[in-house]
Computed example of a mutant assay.
Amino acid sequence: MSSNSRITPAASKAAQKSLRMFPIFESLTDEEDLKWIAKCSVRKLRTGDTLAERETPACEVFGVLSGEIRALYKVAVGKEVILGGFRRGDIVGEISALDGEPRCASLSAVNDSSVLVVPGEVFQEILSEKPGVSLFLLRLLSQRVRILNSRVSELSFLDTKHRLYNTLLRLSRHRGLEGAERVISPPVVHAELAEHIGSSRETVSREMARLVRSALIERTNAAIILKDPAELSSRISRALDS
């Protein structure tokens, strides 16, 4: 991953933005928004650029303005597990801003992206002066703990193929047509699915081929279509019961 991101001073770019575009900061007044946005900056990243490295000391909070930022945990040389993705309106990096400890995951750009960089001291100041922001953050952290608990359970109790089924369901959305089909669009490559479940691309490819032969999924240039999501869910339930 490249680390050649570009930082744009607040005076020229961040001042054109608003902290209130992020749900966590919606309760700011116009005056508060102007005061704190002036202390922020905008960072632009190209596909693959590193925004932050795991175990590095830092306390900035990042708000995604465009593109997608991915949190990664490196488990071995050349092998990473995807912890989550963050899109426009999301914030990431708040843990280090709260406890002052090094980053617990690496952050990189999935595609060309831009983020608002909120200095740690500014984030702390907002939290101390705006109880509504603090409450929102508590709810956000609670949601992320629930997701983390789900992922830990998945890794602890499901084998590789059932983790794949669970990931396909998690990444998909309703197709928008009558029926129960779900879709992942644009389609996720097998190497990326492997990073989601902590496995290898070859293992994912074999299981995806089985799902295609069983008519449980269909892959096109534009999407992965889950033809029978209920059956995938049923298989996961049976695996947990056993």
Rank of each mutant, 00 (worst) to 15 (best):
A76W: 08
V118P: 00
V133F: 11
L171M: 14
L45H: 04
H162S: 02
N111D: 07
L45Y: 07
P187V: 14
D90S: 15
I95P: 05
A222H: 01
R182H: 12
T203N: 15
G84Q: 01
L19M: 15
I126E: 05
L177I: 14
F22S: 03
S142G: 12
A76R: 13
T220K: 12
E207Y: 15
H190A: 15
C59V: 11
S114Y: 00
P102A: 01
D99V: 13
E192K: 06
E218R: 13
F86V: 09
L45C: 04
I126Q: 03
A180Q: 06
S96L: 04
K44C: 05
V42C: 03
S66D: 10
P131W: 10
S108R: 04
S114K: 02
I217A: 06
L107E: 05
S142C: 10
P23H: 09
P57R: 06
L65S: 03
L127G: 00
E154T: 14
R206W: 07
E26I: 12
E53M: 12
D112H: 08
L83T: 06
Q16M: 15
V188S: 00
A105G: 02
S237Y: 02
E55T: 05
V133Y: 06
F157H: 06
L148W: 12
I95V: 15
E55D: 14
P131M: 06
V133I: 15
L72A: 12
A223W: 03
V77K: 14
S27E: 14
Q124N: 14
F22Q: 00
D99I: 12
K227C: 10
G67M: 08
E101T: 05
A15W: 14
L168W: 04
G85I: 07
C59I: 07
F86C: 10
V118K: 00
I91G: 06
I91C: 04
I147V: 15
S185W: 02
A58G: 13
R173Y: 03
R103F: 06
S237F: 00
L155A: 07
F136H: 11
L226Q: 01
R163V: 07
T220G: 09
I197W: 05
E231P: 00
V204I: 11
A11Y: 13
V110G: 09
V145D: 08
Q124P: 05
G132E: 04
E181C: 09
G84D: 04
